[in-house]
Computed example of a mutant assay.
Amino acid sequence: MGEFLVELATTVFEGSGPAEVDRRRAEESVGAGGLAAAGHLVRLWCPVGELRGIGLWGAADEGELYEKVLGTLPLWRARRTAPPRMQGQPLRRPTDAACCRSRPRSTSPARVR
């Protein structure tokens, strides 16, 4: 499964009242929850006060990303996207050996303040 970092900006249609916007955002939240449960939505960041989100999505390819993942979201028609494909090394945990090779190793425990 490929990983895609996608910025989604929502456009509020002219004539949509606050109640309609709230209803649609609630539907979007349910849809995103289903995609997260299915493993397609890995992380989602929503800047405070903005109608946009930045998500890390999983799909086999861009076709699946648009048709079977993002395309299932209730607000998809009202979205503008910017989907750069993640290239290079897969995401790694800081404890992975390959991730730590380039850093000097210490025998003393790290101190957190």
Rank of each mutant, 00 (worst) to 15 (best):
V112M: 00
A98G: 15
G71H: 06
S102P: 10
R79L: 02
L75E: 07
E14Q: 01
E27F: 09
E50D: 15
R43V: 01
F4E: 04
E3I: 08
G31C: 09
E28F: 12
V30C: 07
G33V: 10
L5Q: 07
S29H: 11
L70T: 06
P84I: 02
G58P: 05
R25Q: 01
R93A: 12
P47L: 12
A60S: 00
R105C: 11
P83V: 04
E7G: 02
R85P: 01
V21S: 03
M86E: 07
E67N: 10
S108I: 11
A38V: 02
P18F: 07
M1F: 06
P94T: 05
R105P: 08
V12W: 00
A26V: 12
A9L: 10
S106G: 05
G17N: 15
K68I: 07
G88C: 07
L75V: 08
A98Q: 11
C100Q: 13
P18R: 02
E28R: 13
R79S: 12
L91Y: 11
L8K: 03
R52F: 04
E67Y: 02
R113V: 14
V21I: 15
G63E: 14
M86R: 05
L5V: 07
D61N: 08
A82F: 08
G49Q: 09
S29E: 01
Y66A: 12
R43E: 09
A26G: 05
S16I: 10
A59Y: 02
R52P: 00
D22T: 02
G33K: 14
L56C: 12
Q87L: 15
R113Y: 09
E7V: 00
E20I: 01
R93D: 14
E14F: 13
M1S: 13
W45K: 00
G71W: 00
V112H: 06
C100L: 08
R111N: 14
P18G: 09
A36Q: 00
P90T: 08
A26S: 07
M1T: 14
V48M: 06
P109T: 10
T81M: 04
G15Q: 09
A32K: 04
V69P: 06
P18A: 15
L8H: 09
P104R: 07
A82L: 06
F4L: 03
S102N: 05
P90R: 13
E64M: 10
H40Y: 01
C46F: 08
L44I: 09
A78D: 13
E28S: 14
A78H: 09
G39W: 14
G34W: 00
D96L: 13
R43G: 00
P94Q: 11
T10D: 04
G71K: 03
Y66T: 09
R77I: 09
E64C: 07
G49T: 04
R43T: 05
H40W: 06
D96V: 00
I54G: 00
T95M: 01
L8N: 02
P84Y: 06
G53V: 06
A32P: 01
L56N: 01
L51K: 04
V42W: 03
A9K: 05
A110M: 06
G33I: 04
V112T: 05
R24Y: 02
F13K: 15
P90Y: 10
R111C: 02
E62N: 04
E28C: 09
A60F: 03
T11G: 05
Y66W: 15
R23H: 09
A32M: 11
P104Y: 00
E28V: 04
R103G: 08
P18I: 13
E64H: 06
P90A: 15
G53H: 11
